[in-house]
């Protein structure tokens, strides 16, 4: 089976002249349908930029992003196939929109029918009752907001979910809840995940394969099994592993 998402020699460059930043250097990877792939690295390693480049939120200077073997479509067609969950649930929900309005938006944009049912179902799926439907984001906790963001991403029934550090803004117990929710949804809906995190423990829990990035370049490719057995080749990956172990203790 071919890859659902394939990134070939991706390069992302911000700015010009002296302010030029080469954020992503020749990164390639592929995620098969139904798979879960992790991008790991420290802050500033360019892992989030890869996600943003896939969505068209960061300028692609070179290389290709393929969806099902074809260049990614733009706008509405892209939205139906790929959705993203942002890192900070405090910033990704409009402060003046009720949860209802947030969830009604994609339905209106894509002209989907039976909006009422869809919204109720979407809230149920992420474990929020309809009691939350007419609240504002500021009336919700971080974990609840991230659940709303996940519900919004899933409303369009995408094949691929891009997760940009979906739990790093949450505290540890909520983090586990949200990760379990994401794992359950993936199993139920056969979603393909591309997850970015600085935390190897999170990636280990969620992904079958992963790519370690440093300074915008790919450092090492790993299988989850290898990670479990601590079979890593590069010094940098070992450092990351140690860091996550220290955290686990």
């Amino acid at each position: 089976m071919g890859a659902l998402i394939e990134v070939r020699d991706l390069n992302v460059v911000f700015g010009k002249g002296r302010q030029r930043v080469h954020a992503v250097k020749d990164v390639s990877f592929a995620v098969e349908r139904g798979g879960s792939f992790g991008l790991v690295g420290e802050s500033g390693s360019g892992k989030s930029t890869v996600l943003r480049a896939i969505c068209g939120l960061a300028p692609i200077a070179g290389g290709q992003v393929l969806l099902d073997g074809a260049p990614v479509p733009h706008g509405i067609a892209f939205a139906r196939r790929v959705q993203m969950v942002f890192q900070d649930p405090y910033a990704s929900l409009h402060p003046r929109h009720t949860i209802d309005r947030v969830l009604a938006e994609p339905i209106a944009i894509h002209g989907l029918g039976d909006g009422e049912d869809r919204i109720e179902r979407a809230l149920d799926e992420v474990g929020l009752g309809s009691a939350f439907r007419f609240r504002y984001p500021h009336q919700l906790s971080g974990g609840q907001r991230q659940r709303v963001a996940i519900a919004r991403a899933l409303l369009l029934e995408p094949e691929v979910l891009l997760l940009d550090e979906p739990t790093s803004a949450l505290d540890a117990s909520v983090q586990a809840e949200v990760l379990n929710l994401l794992a359950r949804l993936r199993a139920e809906k056969g979603l393909t995940y591309l997850l970015v995190s600085h935390d190897l423990a999170v990636v280990d829990h969620m992904c079958e394969r992963l790519l370690v990035m440093q300074h915008g370049a790919a450092v090492e490719r790993l299988e989850a099994a290898a990670l479990e057995a601590h079979r890593v080749d590069t010094e940098y990956a070992r450092t990351l592993l140690r860091a996550s172990e220290g955290y686990r203790r």
Partner: peptide
């Protein structure tokens, strides 16, 4: 960005 990703 989220709204744009939804195709708005």
């Amino acid at each position: 960005a989220a709204a744009r990703l939804q195709g708005a």
